[in-house]
Amino acid sequence: MDHPANTLSLVADIGGTNTRVALANGREVLDQTIRRYANTDFPGLESVLQRYIADEGNVNPCAACVAVAGPVRDGRATMTNLDWTINKDTLQRATQAETVAILNDLQAQGHALGYLDPANIRNILEGPEGQPHAAKLVVGVGTGFNAAPVYDLEHGRIVAPSECGHANLPIRNEMELRLCQYVSTAHGFPAVEDVLSGRGLERAYAFLGQEADDPRESAAKDIMAACADGSDPRAVDAARLFTRILGTVCGNLSLIQLPFGGVYLVGGVARAFAPHLAGFGFGEAFRDKGRFAGFMGNFAVHVIEDDYAALTGSAAHLKALLSA
């Protein structure tokens, strides 16, 4: 494929299992250039990007941005669920791009807000329309859990990084206390991510089996399938428990960040749960804040159903850098 030299940007979304790479023209990701690579086939990101560049006819990008599932500090990223370390030197060497950037994957999702097709945004809880510069919040629920506030300031957008998935799980009742004790046996600490993730849903299912003195295991995809067809009451109970804890955590984060511009759930698990959130009590748990229950109505909640939103966010971030 023939691409104009030094014109397009290269963007990548690096997950724990796969890396998705694409070219972008400004903020627009070119759908026909999206390619997916299995991380286990490569020793590191540099070789993935070199393969992509070759696959796209030795394209010469003017800029490159990668979104990574892990913390980023001083231009260096460490993957949470993958033994790769990524820095700007590596990215520049692999792409030969003049401008490079590294974002946490939730930061990339935050930079995508406002540039996604509205058809790919599902409304979960209604709320008043926020002002153009109102803060927003992206909450990622997938292989792990994380959230990031989004601020639109006069000089541009800031998406602050965080690792809030590793904070303590909230506890509201005796059952949730027992759940915390159950998940803490994994590594001695009951983190939010230990329940609010794909693996966490499996733990919730196993916990309910222990509670019923009928231990059984089930994979996350099978639990969600059973919720859809009603074939396993325990799967429904596990999904309901998961949903209410998700509502509690999102409500807590909303009180901390005051996202009057909306809360946006992203990630594969969030998309899978989207049809069930209303029926399984997300809204009730989200607003269960005592005398602030009414105040919680200020925050609309949505699910982003665009699997490539992080690529769009990376392209938008590069566009802002190149325009500065």
Rank of each mutant, 00 (worst) to 15 (best):
M1S: 15
M1C: 08
H3G: 07
A5W: 04
L10V: 04
L10E: 01
V11A: 09
G15V: 01
G16Q: 09
G16W: 02
G26L: 07
G26N: 11
L30C: 09
R35C: 03
Y37A: 10
N39I: 06
N39D: 05
F42N: 09
L45S: 02
V48G: 03
Y52T: 07
V59R: 00
N60M: 13
P61D: 05
A63P: 02
P71F: 12
P71D: 10
M79T: 06
W84Q: 03
T85Q: 14
D89E: 15
T90P: 03
L91A: 03
E98W: 05
V100T: 10
V100W: 08
Q107R: 10
Q107W: 04
A108S: 07
G110Y: 02
L113C: 10
D117G: 05
P118K: 05
I121W: 08
P128Q: 08
P128T: 12
P132L: 01
A134L: 05
L137P: 05
L137C: 08
V138G: 02
F145T: 00
A147V: 09
Y151T: 11
D152G: 07
L153I: 03
I158T: 07
V159Y: 04
P161Y: 01
S162I: 12
H166S: 10
N168A: 04
E174G: 12
E174N: 14
E176N: 11
L179G: 02
Y182G: 07
P190C: 02
E193W: 01
E193Q: 13
V195C: 01
G200I: 04
G200Q: 08
G200T: 04
E202T: 14
R203W: 13
D213P: 05
D213N: 15
A220H: 06
K221T: 14
I223R: 00
I223Y: 11
A225E: 13
A225W: 01
S231F: 09
R240E: 15
F242V: 13
F242K: 12
T243W: 09
T248V: 12
V249K: 00
C250F: 09
L255D: 09
I256S: 13
Q257K: 09
L258T: 14
G262W: 01
V263R: 02
L265N: 04
V266N: 05
G267D: 08
G268E: 06
A272G: 13
F273M: 14
L277C: 07
A278N: 03
G279R: 11
G281A: 04
G283Q: 04
A285H: 11
F286Y: 15
F286I: 13
R287C: 15
F295S: 04
M296T: 02
G297E: 05
N298Q: 15
N298S: 15
F299K: 00
V301L: 01
V303K: 06
D307N: 14
Y308N: 15
A309E: 07
G313F: 02
A316K: 10
A324V: 12
